[in-house]
Design a protein around this nucleic acid. Structure first.
Lengths: 306, 306
DNA sequence: CTTTTCCTTTGACTAAAGTCAAGGAACAGC
DNA sequence: GCTGTTCCTTGACTTTAGTCAAAGGAAAAG
C-alpha cells in the first residue's frame, strides 16, 4: 500500500473570513438591531431578556443567573422589579428552600405573547419583500448556516468515563435506545469506566456551549483491535454531522493506541446508524460478540499511527 | 386568449418566520455577542462603534449622528473623549464651517487595525471548527442569505422624475454607461422629467436603507405602447435580482396605463441586460427608434389591466 | 452537631448610555 | 443686513447596566 502523504493543510481562506464578517456586520445591524429595539418596547432590554428567559415554564434564579450571565444582586433586583410590575411571581423551590423559582403571571405571559407577535410580524414583513421562490431559498440558506454554525461551535473532548458528563450521556443514551429497542435496553450492559480509560480505551463527549450533546466510547477488544460503542447524539443536535465527528475522533484515539482495526455492532432498528457506518468506510462482518441487542456487525481497518 | 385567474396568494409560511427568528436568536446570541464583547476590549462599546464608524475616510459629526442614531450632545462628548485619548482629530469642514469632521489619528488607525485583527481571528477560530467542505458550504449559505436579506429590504417606489433621487440615479447611470460605451454617452439623450410623470409614464427608484440604488423609467411611445428606459442598478447592489424587480415594476405601471406592449433598446456591450430581457419574456424585434446607442431592440406584450 | 458551601438579598457604589434644553457660531434665503 | 435654520457644544440631568461586599437562611459535608 502506498504511503499516504502528509495531511493536506486546511487553512481558512481570508475570503471565508471576510464573508462571515460581512454577513455578521450586516445581520446584526439590520436584523438584530430591529429585534432588540422594537421588541424591548418601553421596557429595558435587561428586563425584557429576563422575562423571556423565565418563559412559560418558569426557572430558578440560579438557572437564570447562569443562563444570562448576571450578577446575583443585579438579578435579584430585576426580578423584584418585574414582580412589582405584576409580570412574574416568585416562590420557594419545593425541594431546596435556598432556591427561588420565578414564573410568569398571566400579565407576564400576555407580554411575552405580544413580544412574539411583534417579532413574528417583523420577520414576516421582512420575508414579505421576497417572492415565494426566494423566500424558500432564504429559509434554506439560513437553516444551512444555522446548522453549520452550531456544528462549528461543538467541541469533542476526551473525558473520564466516570465523570458526570459521561454518565449523563450514557444515561441519556440508555433511555434513548430503551425507548427505541422493542425489547428495551438493560443499562447494565453499558461499558464500565475502567474499560474506556488510559491505554484500554477512551470516552469522548461532544459539548455545545458547555452542555454535553453527544458521546462515544472506545474499548480494547484485543492487542490490535478496538471496539466502538455507545455513539450517541442528543436529539436536539442531530443532523449536524456530529455522529461522524465522534466516530472520526474515536478512530483517531484507536490509531493512537496502535489498533489496526475497530469493530462495532448495531441494533436492527438503528438503520441511520448503519448507513452512517457504511458511509464512513465500515464494512459488514460476521457476528464477533454475543451482544444480545446486535443484529449487524461492522469493522474498519485503520491506517498506522503517524 | 384565456383569461388569467387571480394572482395566486403568496402568504409567508409560519415555518419560514420561525426559521428566520430561530436563526436570528441563535446568531445574535452566539456570534453578535462574541463580536461586541471581545472587540470592545477595555473601551466602551459606544466609543468603539464610533471609532469604527469614523473609519479610514473620516466623517462629519452630522453624518456620524445620522448613521449611529446618536444624540448631538452625546456624540460631541464621545468625540471629545476619543480626541483626548489621541485616537481622532477633529477639524472644521472646509466648505461649511458649522460642520466638524473627525478623522483617525495614527493611533486610531492602529486600534482599528487591531480590532480587525481580533475580529478576523475570531471568525477564523469559528470557521476552523469545520472541515473545508463544510466551510465552503457555510460561506455559500451566508452569501445567499446576505444577498436575499438585502433584496428583501430594498423597496421600489414611484418618484417624480425631477426629484433629487431620480436625478442622482440618472447621473450615476449616465456616468456608468459613459464609461462602458466605447463611444461614450451624451446625457442630453436621457428622458426628460415630464416624459415620465402622470399618465405619460413613470419613474421608479429602488431604495436600500434610504439610499437610492437603482432606477428605471417608463414613457409613452404611442396610445397603447410604452418604452422602458434607463434601467440601472448601483454596482454595489448588483446580482441581487434588483434589475428584474425594477422591470416588473415598470411593466406593472405600463399595465396600469393600459399599454398593451412595452419596447426597449440596449447597447451592444450590455450583454447581461440583453440576457435579462430575454429571461423576462422580451423578444427581439427590428429597430423601432433612432437611438444612436442601440444595437438590439426588444418588446413584450402585456396582459390587460385587471 | 459543627463547619462549610450555596443561594439570595441588601446596601453602596460606578460606568455607560442617553436625554433635554440653552446658547453661540455659521450659513441660506430673502 | 435681517431672519430663520443648521450644527455643534455645554450643563444638568436620568436611566440602565453592572460590580462588590456583607450578611442571613438553608442545605451539604464532615
Amino acid at each position: 500500500m502506498k504511503k499516504m502523504g502528509p495531511v493536506p493543510a486546511d487553512p481558512v481562506s481570508t475570503d471565508q473570513v471576510t464573508a462571515l464578517r460581512r454577513f455578521n456586520r450586516y445581520f446584526t445591524r439590520r436584523i438584530g438591531a430591529l429585534d432588540d429595539h422594537y421588541l424591548g418596547q418601553d421596557r429595558p432590554l435587561g428586563e425584557a431578556r429576563l422575562l423571556f428567559e423565565i418563559g412559560g415554564k418558569g426557572a430558578s434564579l440560579r438557572d437564570l443567573r447562569a443562563r444570562l450571565g448576571l450578577d446575583a444582586g443585579y438579578l435579584s433586583r430585576m426580578v423584584r422589579a418585574l414582580q412589582t410590575q405584576g409580570l412574574v411571581h416568585v416562590s420557594v423551590h419545593p425541594g431546596d428552600s435556598r432556591l427561588r423559582v420565578a414564573g410568569l403571571t398571566a400579565a407576564g405571559e400576555a407580554e411575552i405573547r405580544e413580544q412574539n407577535r411583534l417579532a413574528d410580524a417583523l420577520a414576516e414583513g421582512l420575508l414579505g419583500g421576497l417572492d415565494a421562490r426566494r423566500r424558500a431559498e432564504l429559509t434554506t440558506a439560513l437553516d444551512t448556516a444555522h446548522r453549520l454554525l452550531r456544528l462549528a461551535a461543538i467541541t469533542v473532548e476526551t473525558v473520564d468515563g466516570a465523570s458526570p458528563d459521561a454518565r449523563a450521556c450514557l444515561d441519556a443514551y440508555a433511555a434513548d435506545i430503551d425507548a427505541r429497542f422493542p425489547e428495551g435496553f438493560d443499562p447494565a450492559t453499558l461499558v464500565r469506566p475502567e474499560e474506556v480509560s488510559g491505554e484500554a480505551g477512551a470516552f469522548l463527549v461532544a459539548y455545545e456551549e458547555g452542555r454535553p450533546v453527544g458521546c462515544g466510547a472506545l474499548r480494547r477488544l484485543g492487542p490490535r483491535a478496538g471496539e466502538i460503542r455507545h455513539v450517541w447524539v442528543d436529539p436536539g443536535a442531530r443532523r449536524l454531522g456530529l455522529g461522524r465527528r465522534l466516530l472520526d475522533g474515536l478512530e483517531q484515539r484507536a490509531v493512537e493506541r496502535r489498533f489496526t482495526v475497530v469493530r462495532l455492532d448495531t441494533h436492527a432498528v438503528l438503520t441511520e446508524a448503519q448507513e452512517m457506518y457504511r458511509a464512513c468506510g465500515y464494512t459488514e462482518i460476521p457476528r464477533y460478540d454475543d451482544n444480545v441487542y446486535a443484529a449487524h456487525w461492522f469493522e474498519k481497518r485503520l491506517p498506522a499511527a503517524r
